[in-house]
Structure formats: C-alpha cells, structure tokens
C-alpha cells in the first residue's frame, strides 16, 4: 500500500521547519539568496537542486481582509508519474517508483539525461518540480525520505512540523483524514478543496483558490505541443534504445 502525505495549509504557519529539516537531513548546501530585487519572505525564490522543499508565500486582499497563504511545495509523488514516463522514454531505471511506498525517486542515473531531455521531463511534470544540478547533471526533488520511511520513520518534514499541517501514512487513512479535515475547514472556508487527491501521493488541503497559493498548486495541463512531443517520443522509443546500444 503506497504512502501518502496530507498537507493541510489551514494549519501551516510557514515556520519553515520543513524546509530546513529537509536540507539538514539530505545534507543539502545553502544557496546564496538576496532580498534585493525580490522583496519577499519566500527564499530561495524557487525549488532548486539544494531545496527539495520550499514554503511559498502568497498574499492578497479579499474584501479588505488580508489573506496570506503558505504552500510547502514539494514533489507530489504522482501515482502515474509523467516525469518517470518521460524519463523512461530515454533511460529506463533512471527514475524509479518504489512499489512499497509509492515514492518517485531520481537515481544517480538521471545524470545521463541531456539538458533537453531534462527540460522535457520538467515540462511533463504538472507541478513544475524536477530540477537539474548544472554541474553534475543529476535531477533532484523530494525523495519522500524513502530511506526513513522504509525504517518506519516519518519523512523529516512531517516529523518536524509543529502544528500538524503535515501528516503521513497509509494512503487509505490519509484520504480519510483529508476528507475529515476538509469537512471541518469548509465550515470556515466554503471554497476549501483537496488538490488532485486521486492522482498524487501528496494531497494539499487548500482554503483558497489554488492560484492564490501558487501557479502549480494543482495540476497544470501540459501544453499541447508537449503532448505531441511525448506522443512522438513514445513512438520513437525502440529507436532511441537501439541508437543507444549502437
């Protein structure tokens, strides 16, 4: 039975314990960041090879009341992951899915993807998650702390969360919890919703319209050209392999 995260943004205080715990557990180095030309608490500005998890901040006025939404962004570990599908076209086994946990994992083999192939993989992700290390070429993103999970431990971000904004467990239980929390949150926020709960292993509970959190809070349909590209790529698959072997 795969595992699932529930990220209840109605409880998130953006303390960034998760963002930091992720870096510490994975031993990721710090980026040089700046407020100059940026002016936001969201730092670093975007996901990158050194940040698998990033708390996004988004503010707007609603009937003169401030709404400040926090979105701890990370890989959704899709049930059927477009990044893996795309990657498999070029190099099977570079991106894998752990059957036990459902985690989508980028292995060392991802370094063999070309820059263009990476772009294709990234474009295929409905949540704009994959990032590439320019130096090593390795692709990176949230690992679900798969090593911890196998040992019965919570992912670092979930364990560190002070307010219970993040939960992790068996998919069935998390779906049930998500529905319960949604019912509660809806009393205050009638438009509250679960983001793509049927397709992903990281379910966000949103109290506000998805675009008021982040452009990729819910799945963005790949552009039609991409669909075409993927379709073509799929057709060309055996050829690619053969070329490689040659």
């Amino acid at each position: 039975m795969p595992k699932t995260f529930l990220i209840d943004t109605s409880r998130c205080t953006a303390c960034r314990g998760c963002q930091l715990a992720c870096k510490e557990w994975h031993g990721l180095p710090a980026n040089k960041t700046k407020q100059f030309g940026w002016g936001s608490h969201q730092n670093p500005q975007d996901l990158n090879p050194n940040n698998y998890k990033l708390v996004r901040f988004s503010e707007h006025l609603e009937d003169d009341v401030v709404r400040w939404n926090f979105f701890p962004d990370q890989c959704r570990h899709c049930e059927v992951a477009p990044c893996k599908e795309t990657g498999d076209l070029y190099r099977e086994g570079a991106i894998v899915q752990d059957e036990k946990t459902g985690a989508i994992l980028y292995t060392d083999g991802t370094r063999k993807f070309s820059k263009e192939q990476f772009e294709e993989i990234r474009e295929s992700c409905p949540y704009n998650i994959p990032r590439r290390n320019e130096k090593t070429g390795i692709l990176s993103k949230c690992t679900m702390c798969n090593d911890r999970v196998h040992k019965g431990m919570l992912p670092s971000c979930v364990k560190v969360c002070p307010t219970g904004a993040m939960a992790f467990g068996e998919r069935g239980e998390m779906l049930k919890l998500a529905e319960e929390r949604l019912a509660t949150v809806k009393k205050r926020f009638p438009n509250a919703m679960l983001a793509d709960p049927d397709d992903v292993m990281v379910i966000y509970l949103l109290t506000d319209a998805p675009e008021n959190y982040h452009s990729f809070a819910v799945a963005a349909a790949p552009q039609s050209t991409m669909d075409r590209k993927r379709f073509l790529a799929k057709l060309a698959r055996p050829v690619t392999r053969m070329t490689e072997k040659a």
Partner: peptide
C-alpha cells in the same frame, strides 16, 4: 550525525521550527 526533535517530549512532540531544525549544521 543528526539532530531531530524528541517525539516523546509532551510540549514539542518531535517538532522543531526552522532554527531548531538547523541544529545539526
């Protein structure tokens, strides 16, 4: 080799904030 919140302590129950989470480095 690592630092994490103490899950048994009744006040933080394993949780930490950004600063606490950075205790290792």
């Amino acid at each position: 080799v690592s630092v994490e919140g103490d899950p048994d302590y009744p006040i933080n129950e394993g949780a930490l904030c950004a600063k606490g989470a950075a205790m290792f480095t």
